[in-house]
Design a protein around this nucleic acid. Structure first.
Ligand SMILES: [Mn+2]
Ligand SMILES: [Mn+2]
Ligand SMILES: [Mn+2]
Ligand SMILES: [Mn+2]
Lengths: 219, 219
DNA sequence: CAATTTTGTTAGATAAATCTAACATTATAA
DNA sequence: TTATAATGTTAGATTTATCTAACAAAATTG
């Protein structure tokens, strides 16, 4: 069984993996907020325990076992976030920190009950997919709002970043998942987009914001 | 902030404390399932951090700060157990192991929401009192079923032991908190008691079982 | 009270997870 | 293509939580 520390490394490895499933030591060090020697020694441990493949001076790669374990921790994280929002009344900006701790609890029934009580949700409160019990993730290909054009109507479906600050910004504008946005115009100079939704007849969203909003095109 | 390990020591210290608030190193070692030298070194650490008073060859004593911290961890444990039973449909025999992990989560709002959702319960699923937010415990003086006499009617209110095995024994006899028991007779030889309750017209409970059943006398 | 048992301490070792300083390799760029 | 920068490794130290072996103090008992 992976330690809590190892579990956090596995999650980061899973999230950082590129198209070749590779992760560099330096990226991992940055992500985990530890020094490179710490990562170097940890990847040796993780390899010894069968979670990843490591060769000197090469990027590391999760084994299938490591990938599944990571996905199952992410499953616990996202189920917890959804439970906190749907069953306990938390805001989507409050749940990440709590889930970061709850994800390490070893009690399959606890998470199965959450899952059942919520009717087996497939996405978390930020629109990210919840891996299934086998650790499989259904990847959905949303469009970034930045790539949309004036005249289109879209539905806010997910976020590429779920920091508390960004979520609080969205709260301040009454933006939540499922909101239908009409794109009124797009400014060529700074790529900002003007949208209307609900009782907001005209709201300007900067490129920085639009990049982080994933949407479904209506039709 | 106490480490998870320190938190578990604080809980054990709280539970083992005698009338003079003292705990012996050997008791603590047994309870924590570690060696005496391990406890010896840990109590020095706990003293250094202000959780207890330690003098060579003397039993240790929690400081008020240590006592409060312990009570607040026990509060999280018992709130969790109650939440698992009342809001998530777990049996009273399934919740201790999960609560043992959840009690270490640092997220005051999480436990406050549980508390709110349950309407501020004062006892856990095994009848033990839930300390308040200040770490104060309301001690209730129940009677042991062993000390009751034939002819008396009592209500099962709490347990002195909540091991899974004992809880499963109680389940098998349909005994749960709140059950009204009529004491039909008491065997002088082995102190066993014959009771009737619900649709059980005559059930014999050994002294070993009666010792662990805490009851309220009806009038 | 002296012998024995129980309880507690010290010393020294180990494993996990981290660090800094120094060095090595690989990648980038002048 | 060599100098420089970026990335990665090694060595050695630290902290936390644990252990066993050896010893010391306190309590119990004959
Ligand atoms: Mn999250
Ligand atoms: Mn985590
Ligand atoms: Mn319990
Ligand atoms: Mn615990």
């Amino acid at each position: 069984m992976a330690s809590q520390t190892e579990e956090n490394y596995l999650k980061s490895l899973f999230n950082l993996a590129n198209d070749n499933n590779e992760v560099n030591i330096s990226e991992l060090a940055t992500q985990m907020q530890v020094s490179m020697p710490t990562v170097n020694s940890m990847v040796k441990t993780l390899q010894k325990n069968g979670w990843l493949i490591y060769e000197k001076y090469k990027p590391v790669t999760l084994t299938p076992k490591g990938k599944k374990e990571a996905a199952l921790i992410i499953r616990k994280h996202r189920l917890t976030e959804m439970f906190l929002v749907n069953k306990m009344g938390f805001g989507w900006e409050e749940v990440h920190e709590i889930a970061e701790q709850v994800e390490h609890i070893h009690a399959p029934k606890f998470f199965e009950r959450m899952d059942e009580m919520m009717g087996f949700p497939t996405i978390d409160p930020h629109g990210s997919p919840i891996p299934d019990k086998q650790g499989r993730i259904q990847e959905i290909n949303y469009l970034s709002l930045s790539d949309c054009k004036a005249g289109q109507t879209v539905i806010l479906a997910a976020l590429t970043n779920s920091s508390t600050e960004f979520l609080e910004f969205l709260n301040s504008r009454n933006l939540s998942l499922g909101t239908e946005l009409k794109i009124l115009s797009k400014e060529a100079y700074d790529q900002s987009i003007v949208v209307s939704y609900l009782d907001h007849s005209s709201e300007t969203l900067s490129e920085k914001v639009c990049d982080k909003l994933l949407v479904k095109l209506l039709e």
